[in-house]
Structure formats: structure tokens, C-alpha cells
């Protein structure tokens, strides 16, 4: 490693290649998690939203459903953002 590598590494985080890598890591991780979810998840999500709507006024984006698979168990995470009371 030469002395100029020190300066090179400083600019590395702003190079267009590192921007590309960051963007790819995010989109690929996102698409992989979608790929692993079962086919019924979108419909189940919609039905859960419909049930919640019977009682509280929420939009589609206020309900997040995520399925996480670890080694021997799957966790279905349901996150509902309720509207302000006032």
C-alpha cells in the first residue's frame, strides 16, 4: 500500500461505484425478502387491513406486515400505526 492510497480511500465513499454498491445492497436485500414471502401474504395483508378498518380508520400504508424466517421459527410481524385520537 502506497502513501496515496490514504487519500484514495478518503474519496472512496463518494465514488460513483460505492454509491452503486450501496444502492444495490438495499434493493437486493429488499427484493430477496419479498421473494421469500409466501404467495398468500399480500391477500392476507389486505384482509387484515379490512378487518382493522371496521374499527379504526387506517390507510393501507399504516399497516405493515412482515414475515421473518430464522432457523427454526417464522415470525409474522404486524405493525399498525393508529391515527391520533384528537
Amino acid at each position: 500500500m502506497g502513501i496515496f492510497d490514504y487519500f484514495k480511500s478518503k474519496s472512496a465513499s463518494t465514488s460513483s461505484a460505492s454509491v452503486a454498491k450501496d444502492r444495490l445492497q438495499i434493493i437486493v436485500a429488499h427484493e430477496r425478502s419479498k421473494r421469500q414471502q409466501p404467495d398468500y401474504l399480500p391477500q392476507m395483508q389486505q384482509e387484515i387491513i379490512d378487518v382493522i378498518r371496521k374499527y379504526v380508520k387506517v390507510g393501507n400504508e399504516d399497516v405493515q406486515i412482515q414475515l421473518d424466517n430464522s432457523d427454526d421459527c417464522s415470525v409474522l410481524e404486524l405493525n399498525v400505526t393508529l391515527p391520533d385520537q384528537n
Partner: peptide, 16 residues
């Protein structure tokens, strides 16, 4: 171009 930071490197693509 990889050296100039204009192109993803081998290890970048391997990482992803």
C-alpha cells in the same frame, strides 16, 4: 475504471 471508482469491483459484486 474500477481503480478510479467508476465501476463496481469484483469484490463489490461478490459481496452483493
Amino acid at each position: 475504471r474500477v481503480e478510479l471508482g467508476e465501476m463496481l469491483s469484483v469484490s463489490d459484486v461478490e459481496d452483493i
